[in-house]
Simulated assay, not measured.
Amino acid sequence: MSQKTLVNKNLRFTLSPGQEEIGRRAYNLIIGATLLYGFAVNAVMVSLFQDFFAGINYLALVIGYIVCVLIGAFLTRSDSGLISFIGYNFIVVPLGAMLSVILPYYGTELVFNAVVITGTITLVMMAAGTIFPKIFLGMGRMLFFTLIAVIVVELGAMLIFHRDFAVMDYIVVLLFSGYIGYDWAKANAYRRTVNNAIDSATDLYMDIINIFIRILSILNRNS
């Protein structure tokens, strides 16, 4: 579910023609508001459209999700805040459709517990990224290659052994917890523009959703 290899983040350290920096408070508020918007859209879709998306062929839903995420990842490369926000929606909305199909199988209690645990991890790692930015900024290459290794292992397990390994859920949680600290540290290193705030929120959104899904899987296994 990651778009990290598709986004040219180097552009975020410079100002494009016509862009202006905003205050730190406004910058952080835009990041927070964008994240809350994404989660709110997901919650509404899960609450209101479960039956609708449950009636769609699952393979078609997955293919549509992948296509939309790739489009969203491409659009977030733009230096326009509006286009980046449109790209963000191309990621958030299809993910809401997927969650509408997946979450009913887990039950309200497990979903709530996963939300609480994910929220706690997010706050802790954002605080760590604020306190130790240099440490997290130095973890980028390690996190990237670990992500590639996880993708290869999980694809191999699915295609060759036709199963998943429980330990991978814990590894992914640790990996994307690190990514939260890394992406938050990078967000604070970027030029404070509306576009960078939306792009940073997109990165954090993907980190948080990956953690949430894996936490849900771990809780389900344990129950």
Rank of each mutant, 00 (worst) to 15 (best):
G138P: 05
T118H: 04
V124K: 12
T146Y: 06
V101W: 02
N222D: 12
I66C: 13
S2L: 12
V62G: 05
V44C: 01
S84N: 11
L29M: 11
V69L: 14
A201G: 08
Y205E: 05
T108F: 05
L155I: 14
F112W: 11
D199N: 15
L159Q: 07
I86W: 03
N210C: 05
D51V: 00
A33K: 09
L219C: 10
R192T: 14
A189W: 11
L159H: 07
V111Q: 06
L11I: 09
S84F: 03
H162Q: 10
T5Y: 15
Y106A: 04
I56S: 10
D79I: 07
T76Y: 00
A26F: 00
P94A: 04
I63Q: 07
V173F: 03
V101T: 03
N10K: 07
Y205A: 05
E20D: 00
L95P: 01
S223R: 15
Y27I: 10
I215P: 01
S100W: 01
S78F: 02
Y27S: 10
E154F: 05
V92W: 01
N8Y: 10
E154K: 11
E21K: 12
N210S: 06
F112C: 06
A128M: 08
M98D: 01
K9Q: 12
D183M: 01
G156C: 07
L216I: 08
F145R: 09
N210W: 07
L35R: 02
L82C: 13
N210G: 06
M1W: 11
R25C: 02
G119H: 07
L110Y: 05
Y65P: 10
K9Y: 13
I30M: 07
G107T: 07
G64I: 02
L204Q: 07
L59T: 12
S78R: 04
A157S: 13
